[in-house]
Amino acid sequence: MSKTVCPRCATGGALDDYQGKEGGKVVWTIHRCPTCCFSWRDSEPASAIGIGIRSADFAVDAANLDRYVKILQQ
């Protein structure tokens, strides 16, 4: 399990989905949180991905995922 922590739900274990490269050198990495499905690029401004800096209004509570509605239920 990776140590990368999700900036949205503060859970560890984020996956590495893609690396942007130039001349063989990694420029940035796209991560994805398997808990809250947030994806981010590690080159984004801290206002979007900085833990403790990012707006708390957009946090997801990993302990309470049942509160989110399922769309298109029969």
Binding site: F38, S47, A48
Partner: peptide, 8 residues
Amino acid sequence: RINEYDGG
């Protein structure tokens, strides 16, 4: 990312 707080 289209808007700053989009989920992905």
